[in-house]
Structure formats: structure tokens, C-alpha cells
């Protein structure tokens, strides 16, 4: 066996790892598409102090924040099939639970945890919008609903962007835990290649690089969008 890094293997495996990017991004995108509206609704329920929903949200958020994602994955992976089996039996549906693609579990786990995190992000961003904005909107004849839709929510979303970027990057990184559910994403693919070729360091460096590039691109995109969206904040009076 040769000394040092096997560059050839590293380059090959880099592309193997890269081939996991679509799955990583797909899971991230689905989780965000579910979590952004859901998180926002929960945030609104907390800001507007809607009873019951507000308390449930608080418990849910502290559950997600207080447990590692890997544990949430284990729980989901173990319990969802049991629940489904029971349901399928009850309604006489013929389907094999174990044929369910792991990506569905990933959708569930990551939507669930991201919704909780984004509900906190949006809650604090709604808090940054001055109360006077709502009053001014009401005073010109907007209903509260219209005031939220036209004035408060657009401003809250802009101030949420930096935290939304962080949450997205964290989500991308967290999907690497999908390997525990045999999700064919970046980490799993590179690890399989590493196992086959016995070149672990090379594979880990590849994984490292792929995530670094991916996350940097996402951060860059958010920064760019934030600059555009917060045009109204620029000060040159």
C-alpha cells in the first residue's frame, strides 16, 4: 500500500460524494417547503397568544431543541412503521411497510425538527417589527389580517433571513445523519466508497469539501438575497 493520500481515489470519491448532493438538497428543500409555512403559522399563534396551540408549540419546540436529531431519527425510524402497520391493519390496506423508501422518513424527521426551529426564528423576527407599524396600518383602514400580510410579515421575513440562512445550513449538515436511515446522501455514498477502497481519510476529506462548498454557496445565495430584499433599509438620507 502506498504512503500518503491516494489522490486518484480521492478524486473519484469526490464525485461519488457529489452524486449524493441531489438527495441532500431534495430533503433540505422539502423540509424547508413544509417548515417555512408551518413554522410561520406556529410563530403567529405564539405572537398572537392563541390558546392551546401556543402551549403545544412551546412543548414541541422544547422537545426538538432538547433532543439530538439522531435520536429523533431513531424514534421516527422505529415508531412510524409500527404506527403505519397498525393503521394499515385497521383499514385493511395491503402494503409492505418495509418497502417505504427511507427518503420519506427523512422528510418526516427533518420537516418536524426544522418547523420547530423556524417557528422560533419567525417568532423573534416578528418581534423585531415595531408595534407602530401595526397601528399605522390599522389607522389607514387595514384589517389586522391585511396589516400582517402587507406590512408586518414582509418585514419580519427580511429580518428572519440571516437566521433562516443559519437554519438552512444546519439542516443541510443535519441531513448527513440520514445515513442512519440508509438515505443515499453525500455522507453515506462517500462512506460506502471508503469502505470498499479502505481509504477513509480521503473519503472524509471529500465529504468535508462537498459540505463546505454546498454550505458556502447557500450562505452566499442568502446574503445576496438579503441585500436585495432589505433594500428599503439602506440609509442615505
Amino acid at each position: 500500500m502506498q504512503q500518503g493520500l491516494n489522490i486518484h481515489f480521492m478524486i473519484d470519491t469526490f464525485f461519488v460524494a457529489l452524486s449524493g448532493v441531489p438527495v441532500t438538497l431534495f430533503v433540505t428543500a422539502v423540509a424547508l417547503l413544509i417548515a417555512i409555512p408551518a413554522g410561520f403559522l406556529l410563530a403567529l399563534s405564539r405572537v398572537n397568544e392563541i390558546p392551546v396551540i401556543r402551549q403545544i408549540t412551546m412543548v414541541y419546540v422544547s422537545f426538538v431543541r432538547g433532543t439530538p436529531i439522531i435520536v429523533q431519527i431513531f424514534i421516527t425510524y422505529a415508531s412510524v412503521p409500527l404506527i403505519l402497520t397498525a393503521l394499515f391493519e385497521k383499514y385493511g390496506i395491503q402494503a409492505n411497510i418495509y418497502d417505504i423508501h427511507p427518503i420519506w422518513y427523512a422528510f418526516i424527521v427533518f420537516s418536524f425538527s426544522t418547523t420547530a426551529i423556524l417557528s422560533e426564528v419567525f417568532r423573534s423576527s416578528l418581534g423585531t417589527v415595531d408595534r407602530g407599524q401595526l397601528e399605522a396600518a390599522q389607522s389607514v383602514g387595514l384589517t389586522s389580517f391585511q396589516a400582517f400580510r402587507r406590512i408586518l410579515i414582509p418585514q419580519a421575513l427580511v429580518s428572519a433571513l440571516p437566521n433562516l440562512a443559519t437554519a438552512t445550513v444546519n439542516l443541510i449538515k443535519a441531513t448527513s445523519l440520514g445515513y442512519a436511515m440508509s438515505l443515499q446522501e453525500i455522507t453515506l455514498k462517500a462512506k460506502v466508497a471508503a469502505n470498499a477502497g479502505y481509504h477513509y481519510i480521503e473519503a472524509y476529506i471529500d465529504i468535508f469539501l462537498v459540505y463546505l462548498i454546498l454550505c458556502s454557496l447557500v450562505e452566499f445565495a442568502f446574503k445576496w438575497y438579503e441585500r436585495r430584499a432589505s433594500r428599503y433599509k439602506v440609509h442615505h438620507a
Partner: peptide, 26 residues
């Protein structure tokens, strides 16, 4: 109509949008 001590203009809207908002949406 109300004119506020600290203006309370809609920060995310231009001057003309601020003035038109109540007419269009309200």
C-alpha cells in the same frame, strides 16, 4: 386618520406606496 409622533411610516414601502396602501388595500 392618524398622524403619529414618530411617523410610523411603513418601512418596507416607498413614499408613494405608503400613501396609496390605505386606499388600495383598505
Amino acid at each position: 386618520a392618524f398622524v403619529f409622533q414618530n411617523y410610523n411610516l411603513f418601512n418596507n414601502k416607498t413614499a408613494i406606496e405608503n400613501v396609496a396602501e390605505g386606499l388600495i388595500t383598505g
